[in-house]
Amino acid sequence: MITNDIIYDFLMDGIRGELSLFYSKKYKHIPNRLFRFEKFSNARLDTLKQNQIRMTEAERFNDPFDCLGIFWDSATLTEFSKTQGLSYIGESLDKEIDKMFREALTPLKVTCFSSELYNLPLWGNYAESGSGFAVEYDFKQLGVNSDFTKLLYPVIYREEREDITGVLKKLIEVASNGQFHPLLRLLFYKNLIKHISWAYEKEWRLIFIEKESFIKMPIKPTAIYITDRCDGENEKLLKEIALSLECDFYKLVPTKNNRNFIFEESLAK
């Protein structure tokens, strides 16, 4: 299981500029199976049929704090800005910082995966109470140098938002003299922070900047999954898509006479 401590370890390599070490450490922790949960629609079926995934604008996520799991001390930054010869007051400085982060979200396109297939809330929330489907990918096939594995990140779940006052002080300092500091890379990693209440999702997210909304996948799905709640006609359509993509097609049925809440998994016929 990947923990926040493990994530912080390889993120620090990235912040220090040791990118090859960062990518190799992160790659080791990418699960062999990542799942995208979907509801049925003609558009989603067409996207799957073309072996694409739909990227979503970060601002449209269902979590109002998504990509914004940060805060700063306005008074500290206002006083510091004065030492740098800037004339901001607290309110105007806050507005400028908030504007910077809001504008930084605009070009981001994100799509989300989970490391868990048998996750009942995910089936309920993202696959129409189990009547939808899940698609399995093995990004490890691509290797450590693929853009897709480089741009695939685990989400960090926290009780509190990250205090970035120190980072913003460095931003103000370097902005006033035109320099760059590696700590500024921390501003990207805010896109990975979510509240602990979302931890059940065990999310990995693929983040592109200024890309199209539909991305062609460099690999085919390894499997497609449905549950016994899937409509017969939809099951038939998905089975045809699985055949065209040359991937396995499974049906999940809740087990009976078993203490545990688990599915019985079988190849759909």
Rank of each mutant, 00 (worst) to 15 (best):
T227H: 07
S244Q: 14
D46H: 12
M100I: 07
V174G: 01
D94Q: 12
E265H: 05
D63S: 04
G14W: 07
W123R: 00
I193Q: 04
I219W: 10
K82Y: 03
V155P: 01
H29A: 03
C112F: 10
L206H: 13
K239C: 04
K28L: 13
F71L: 14
R54L: 15
I215S: 04
R161H: 15
Y118R: 15
M12C: 07
D138G: 05
K26D: 02
T76K: 12
T255A: 15
F22D: 02
I89Q: 11
K220E: 08
N4M: 13
R185E: 09
I193L: 12
L142S: 06
L142P: 02
L93N: 00
L68K: 09
I215A: 01
T111I: 06
V174D: 01
S131H: 10
Q84I: 07
K216H: 08
K169H: 01
F37K: 05
R102T: 11
S244C: 11
L77G: 00
D13Q: 15
S41Q: 05
G124E: 06
R158P: 05
R259G: 13
F208Q: 06
Y88A: 00
K95Q: 14
K269T: 12
A175M: 13
R36M: 13
E233D: 13
T47Y: 08
I6D: 05
K25D: 00
G178W: 05
V174K: 00
R102W: 10
L11C: 11
T78I: 07
S129L: 06
K95Y: 11
N4Y: 09
E91M: 07
S131Q: 14
Y23H: 14
T111Q: 03
K256R: 06
E57I: 09
N177R: 11
S197I: 11
F35M: 08
A127M: 08
K26P: 03
F35C: 09
L48R: 02
H29D: 04
G178Y: 13
I2A: 09
T56D: 09
N145F: 10
E136M: 10
R60N: 15
Y27W: 11
S146W: 03
L152G: 01
F40S: 08
W204Y: 12
E128H: 14
L68S: 10
T111P: 04
P31I: 02
A127K: 00
R54W: 14
F180S: 14
V253P: 00
D163Q: 12
L168K: 00
L245F: 13
S176L: 09
F214T: 12
I53H: 01
K251Q: 08
L252P: 00
L142T: 09
P64N: 12
F249Y: 10
P218W: 13
F22Q: 00
W204I: 10
I53P: 01
A242W: 04
T227F: 06
